[in-house]
């Protein structure tokens, strides 16, 4: 069923990671990803992996949830591995057949690339699994606040994002319902050629669009009747404030980035 898709799903919890300010988590995630790209050599990678593993353990995210989240990007990872194995030329040839040539350098690069990609994706899970969408957009809005000076509608962007996130499950449910209804009228989505299949989505897409527009219209009316007029002079119920643990976490983050840079210098 469509419902089983996880899309940046939030798992409520009370761990330290959950309690961190969303801004802290955003900054730490960016720092971690930067560090991943700086990291060179086996030790640096092992270190980055250890950091990630520790954070995952603290946040009590179930390994099953991570594996499920990784499933859709598996193809990309496999693709990267294959490309690297076959196209990176090196000195030590492991296998040769016609023009196909696999070298030790290629295999090593492939393994590094795949693990970097995987760690990168899992680090984003760490953010989305432990932060509710509302907190996340709230944090994003706060962080982008300086951009208001150059007349960027930051609040409106954040509002659009939270509305979009809010309606994903609703629209998925709606799609499920429309599919069932059209199936009841004998619609066939499983057989036939490409053109027939493309045509068969029409009975789903049209009602879905109409209902999305209807919902948008209703929501706009509801917001206006509650006097919504954008971000100017708007206060929020939950004021984001950095707490001591945020500063400690940021300090840790800085230390990690520094160690990766140092590791790079010393191992070369």
């Amino acid at each position: 069923m469509l419902k089983d898709i996880t899309l940046g799903q939030y798992f409520p919890g009370k761990t330290v990671v959950h309690r961190l300010d969303p801004r802290t988590k955003l900054v730490l995630m960016i720092a971690y990803i930067t560090a991943l790209f700086i990291a060179k050599g086996l030790f640096a990678y092992l270190f980055m992996f250890a950091v990630l593993l520790t954070c995952l353990t603290i946040s009590k995210i179930k390994p099953k949830a991570i594996l499920r989240g990784l499933r859709p990007v598996f193809i990309i990872i496999i693709f990267t591995v294959v490309l690297n194995i076959f196209f990176i030329r090196g000195e030590t040839i492991l296998f040769k057949y016609g023009i196909i040539e696999i070298t030790a350098e290629g295999v090593i690069t492939a393994v590094f690339m795949a693990s970097r990609l995987m760690m990168l994706i899992v680090s984003t899970f760490l953010l989305t699994y432990t932060t509710s969408p509302i907190a996340l957009t709230n944090g994003l809005e706060k962080m982008l606040n300086p951009l208001k000076k150059i007349k960027l509608p930051v609040h409106e962007f954040a509002m659009m994002m939270s509305i979009a996130l809010r309606f994903i499950p609703t629209l998925i449910e709606e799609t499920d319902k429309i599919i069932s209804a059209q199936k009841s009228r004998g619609a066939d989505f499983e057989t036939g050629g490409l053109i027939k299949r493309a045509k068969s989505v029409l009975p789903i897409i049209v009602p879905l669009f109409i209902s999305a527009f209807r919902r948008a219209d209703e929501l706009a009316t509801a917001m206006e009747s509650r006097c919504y007029h954008g971000g100017e002079g708007r206060t929020s119920m939950k004021v984001l404030r950095l707490s001591p643990i945020d500063y400690i976490a940021l300090l840790f983050g800085a230390a990690i980035v520094a160690s990766v840079i140092l590791l790079g210098i010393y191992t070369n």
Binding site: I178, S180, A181, Q182, S184, P203, V206, P207, I210, S211
Partner: peptide, 10 residues
Amino acid sequence: VFQYPEYQLF
């Protein structure tokens, strides 16, 4: 006939 079947017209 589902609930609110008018939303399936296309």
